[in-house]
Write a protein that binds this DNA or RNA. Structure first.
Lengths: 214, 214
DNA sequence: TAGATTGTTAATCGATTAACAATC
DNA sequence: TAGATTGTTAATCGATTAACAATC
């Protein structure tokens, strides 16, 4: 599809583009210019144009723009929304339980099929999804569940050992919510999401604001 | 404390530094060089040195490094961990409930004190924290709760109207989990965290890997 | 046709990396 | 003292922005 790989920044903008495009699509709009997308997101046209050119399977039409539906299709393909992938979740604690029951991920192509934990009290089938002992997190089990992604929602100190387990179980990608940098072989893909980091941005701005007011 | 403001990238690295420092502190280490931090995070020394110089209240000592405890203190101050701030959560749905019951945020200086929703079934005090009707999200209520931050966990289409409410209620900062860019006055601080975006990074890498294997 | 919009090339900006003198 | 580590200045790299010719 695209000629070159997307940079991290470009990739981060895709979900925003998608959200704008879906809104326009819902409103019955048929085609869109990069200018319009840029305006909606307070970005400059050039940036959007470059991004879109890179990910679009079709060329833009001068004086018209691009077909919204096919653009949505292109982005969703790249973001993996078109194809549901199974995931296992390790750490059915406070935050883990939240995700465990959150159905929203399926819109993004991710389906949690099982949980793993060390806490015996959590293990069993009492919930909508099975929770297994972390000891059962093996290559065979992962294959049986047809899982390709592992979600880590354990405390920071336990994250690396869980990652090691997932690697051994031949998981292809790890979505890491623990505030720990993971060491994994280069063929395993890791995406970190750190709530603390995100919150830090907010706190820092408030801290600056307060400091300025004094 | 620091002379210049931190860039977004630098800010994002602080929680990582903090995590490394805390590990070393727990291990009984007293002082640390930037080189050590850099090694732990696979960053290069120069970058870490610049970052640390910017946020540290004390100068580094050649041939020794810096005192770990005071460095932790500096970072925690900037990240706002030293001072708990109250927050209200709007949207006690699937993801919202998760956060609502997640106690982990208090470690990062954030305490959720109340929830708001439009769904009458969710309103009441049956849980550990009160859930109010979104109609009650007023300036007075926010003041009464001593809340400074608003957390948005509603679906994308509702996010902007919730943001408007929060602004009217004179909230200072918004932590936005909805996949929507918010328009707010410049004195209100917004930090977006988009699970879809984070997942997109993972999906895209898997997509590239698959494409390459073909 | 005229004009909006595209794709592409060049200029600018900022962040990262490299180099090195200063110093406890 | 010698050497590890610092702080700072310069070089490199990459991403963003600006400019503009091409075109439906």
């Amino acid at each position: 599809m695209e000629k070159e790989n997307l940079t991290k920044n470009q990739l981060h903008r895709l979900p925003d583009y998608l959200s704008v495009l879906k809104n326009l699509d819902n409103a019955g709009v048929k085609s869109v210019s990069c200018q319009t997308i840029a305006d909606c997101l307070n970005l400059n046209t050039e940036k959007v144009r470059k991004d879109i050119a890179l990910i679009s399977s079709s060329s833009g039409v001068p004086n018209k723009g691009r077909d919204i539906k096919s653009l949505i299709d292109d982005i969703e393909t790249i973001l993996g929304y078109k194809q549901i992938m199974n995931a296992v979740l390790v750490g059915v604690g406070s935050l883990g339980t939240a995700f465990f029951h959150y159905k929203g991920f399926e819109d993004f192509g991710l389906k949690i099929v099982a949980g793993f934990d060390t806490n015996q009290a959590l293990i069993g089938k009492n919930k909508s999804l099975p929770v297994y002992d972390v000891k059962e997190l093996t290559k065979e089990k992962v294959k049986e569940l047809d899982a390709h992604i592992g979600i880590i929602t354990v405390p920071g100190y336990a994250a690396q050992s869980v990652a090691d387990l997932l690697v051994k179980a031949e998981i292809e990608g790890i979505w890491n919510f623990a505030p720990t940098k993971l060491n994994v072989p280069s063929n395993v893909i890791v995406s970190n999401i750190n709530l603390a980091t995100s919150l830090a941005v907010l706190s820092y701005q408030l801290y600056l604001k307060e400091k300025k007011e004094k």
